[in-house]
């Protein structure tokens, strides 16, 4: 078996094991929460009889470990069950929401990744001169701004002062692709502002690191233009750390943007999760938690594998 293939299989197996451990943690964690779902659903209107009725009908009277295996069995066969609060099929609801999450993350990534790497290259090329300082200054200030402040700022600027976009970014089936792009414009801008600096700084640092090497000097002495030196000689050798930072940011774009979703009323997974946490709708919380964990683990495996593939010494072992 090719060593890379073997490595990939190994990583995936480890990832699955990790996911199983995470599922136990998620289940135990949600079980340990104070109050139960029956109380959270009924709220102020809970009478003892109504509580007992609801607990019975939700099956909350069985011991926890039995419910865990029931649940795990369901998940493995693709059945996440029904939401306790409104009886909707969780799998279906998640599929649609996950689609929206990936759409937003995809749009943000499509803009931020090339932009960050491009800016990183330019900053490295003009290291210590004004373009470097301007790029670093701007991206560092946008990353320092909390997401919700950035969000309110773009809402104010782009819907009130210059009414170009709409503040509520909901998307729904039946919208055309362009209408969807228009709807998510504001959250995408905010997310780009937030993730840009991290990737840009890493690109710059990785390139500068390589620029000290002897072969770069050779390339320069050959008379190549600085941009060509960076593009052809420095970047391929600096790509491993850049990939891992890019992938980490992608993971963040998928699982960590609930604040942005809420501010723009964007109907994606984060908001769905938060709503159901508030109502103690455990099957949904567990399902979404598991999906977030899977995305995170999956992207990390991807980062590892890509870093290895990008490294010729690991690609062609002696």
């Amino acid at each position: 078996m090719h060593p890379i293939l073997k490595l990939v299989v190994q990583r995936i197996a480890l990832g699955l094991l990790l996911l199983l451990a995470v599922s136990v943690l998620i289940y135990a964690g949600t079980e340990a929460l104070p109050g139960d779902v029956a109380q959270a659903i009924l709220g102020q209107s809970a009478t003892p009889e109504a509580l007992a009725n609801l607990r019975e009908s939700l099956g909350l009277n069985q011991p926890g470990y039995i419910r865990y295996f029931h649940w795990l069995g369901g998940v493995l066969t693709g059945d996440f069950g029904k939401a306790l609060t409104n009886g909707q099929d969780i799998g279906q609801a998640i599929a649609q929401r996950l689609g929206n999450t990936l759409f937003l993350a995809g749009c943000a990534a499509a803009i931020s990744v090339p932009l960050a790497i491009g800016l990183g290259l330019v900053a490295a090329r003009y290291n210590g001169r004004w373009p470097d300082k301007v790029i670093s200054g701007i991206t560092l200030s946008t990353i320092s701004l909390p997401e919700f402040v950035a969000a309110y700022f773009v809402i104010y600027l782009l819907t009130q002062v210059f009414p170009i976009f709409q503040p509520v970014a909901m998307v729904f089936p039946g919208m055309s692709f362009w209408a969807k792009l228009n709807a998510v414009a504001l959250p995408v801008i905010v997310l780009v502002l937030v993730v840009l600096a991290h990737m840009m700084r890493m690109t710059r640092a990785a390139i500068l690191n390589v620029m000290q090497s002897a072969y770069i000097e050779t390339a320069e002495l050959k008379g190549l233009s600085p941009m060509r030196v960076i593009w052809k000689h420095a970047l391929p050798n600096a790509v491993a750390p850049i990939i891992s930072v890019v992938v980490l940011n992608l993971a963040y774009l998928v699982v960590g943007v609930v604040v942005v979703e809420v501010v723009f009323s964007y109907n994606a997974l984060g908001q769905y999760l938060v709503d159901h946490v508030a109502k103690r709708d455990l099957p949904v919380v567990q399902a979404v938690g598991l999906i977030f964990a899977a995305v995170y683990i999956g992207l990390n495996i991807l980062a590892d594998v890509l870093a290895i593939v990008a490294n010729p010494r690991l690609r062609h072992p002696k």
């Binding site: 009130q160 509520v168 723009f264 009323s265």
Partner: peptide
């Protein structure tokens, strides 16, 4: 966001 949506 709700107020902004009304204003817009």
């Amino acid at each position: 966001a709700r107020t902004a949506a009304l204003q817009a």
